[in-house]
Simulated scan of single mutants.
Amino acid sequence: MEKNKKVVILNILLVGTIILNLFIFTSRMRFFPWFIEDAWGYLGVFLTAPILIGIYFMLRHFHKQQLVTSTNKVIPLFVAATSLIIVFMPTTDFLNIVAIVINAASVFLAANFLFNQNGGKNNYGFSRLKNQS
């Protein structure tokens, strides 16, 4: 498989895992249909954190080959670390909102890297920002 396809698959897996993480942290909110009482839903973080850390190591390998940016490389590690820290701290509404904001921002960043995989170049290899004259 091409390296670029592997990076795209990793980014899709990253976005999906962060969205699953987002569902886990919203499981404490009563108005969602997936509400779970007593924070038992947080156990799902112990499933998503190793996946995110594995994605981080794979993206780190592709970063050495200059296929991904350093921001894209750090996103899964940041989400996994903050999620685990929030799970191990006493549960408060403020921490839950912080986790939701971090996960939502990470989804947008990861989706941005997923959809802009070619680095701002068109199909001919020319940058879009160059003057057309």
Rank of each mutant, 00 (worst) to 15 (best):
F126D: 14
N123M: 14
T26S: 11
I12H: 05
V15G: 01
I55M: 05
P33S: 07
A110H: 02
F94K: 14
F25T: 12
L22F: 14
N11L: 13
G16A: 09
T69K: 10
F46S: 07
Q132S: 13
I24C: 06
W40C: 05
F57Q: 01
I18D: 01
N11D: 04
N21F: 10
M29S: 09
T71M: 14
T17N: 08
R128K: 13
N21K: 08
D38K: 11
P50Q: 00
P76M: 01
N131M: 07
F94P: 02
I85F: 12
T91H: 11
F35P: 01
N131E: 13
G16N: 09
T71R: 11
Q66L: 15
L20K: 11
N11Y: 13
Y56H: 11
F31T: 00
L14A: 01
G125S: 09
N11I: 05
M58H: 03
P76I: 02
A104I: 14
K130D: 09
H63M: 06
I19G: 04
N123Q: 13
F115W: 15
A111K: 06
I19M: 08
G54Y: 04
Q66A: 14
M29V: 15
P33M: 04
G120S: 06
A105D: 01
K6T: 08
K130L: 14
V98N: 02
K3V: 05
R60D: 15
S27P: 06
Q132I: 13
G119Y: 12
G44L: 00
N131V: 09
K73E: 15
A111Y: 15
A104C: 09
S127D: 15
L10Q: 08
D38L: 05
G54A: 06
S83T: 03
D93V: 11
F126S: 12
T69E: 07
E37P: 07
N96V: 13
D38Y: 10
N116V: 07
G41N: 00
W34N: 01
F94V: 14
F78G: 03
N112V: 00
K73L: 05
N4R: 08
V15S: 05
S127I: 00
K64N: 15
I100R: 07
I102W: 01
K64R: 12
S127Y: 12
L59Q: 07
G44W: 01
V15C: 11
P33G: 05
L47F: 13
L14N: 04
T26M: 13
N131P: 06
Q65N: 10
F62E: 05
F35Y: 15
A111G: 12
V98S: 00
K64Y: 12
F113P: 06
S27Y: 07
Y124P: 06
P76H: 02
G16K: 08
R128V: 13
V107N: 02
V45G: 00
Y42K: 09
Y124D: 15
A110T: 04
N96W: 09
P90Y: 10
G41F: 02
G125P: 09
G16F: 09
L13N: 06
S70L: 11
V101A: 14
F88R: 14
L59F: 03
K121R: 10
D93S: 11
R28H: 08
L109Q: 08
F108R: 06
M89H: 10
I85C: 07
K64T: 09
I9E: 14
V8N: 05
I85N: 05
T17S: 10
N103L: 01
V7Y: 02
Y56K: 03
V7L: 04
N4F: 08
I55R: 00
K5R: 08
I24N: 02
I97E: 09
L109C: 11
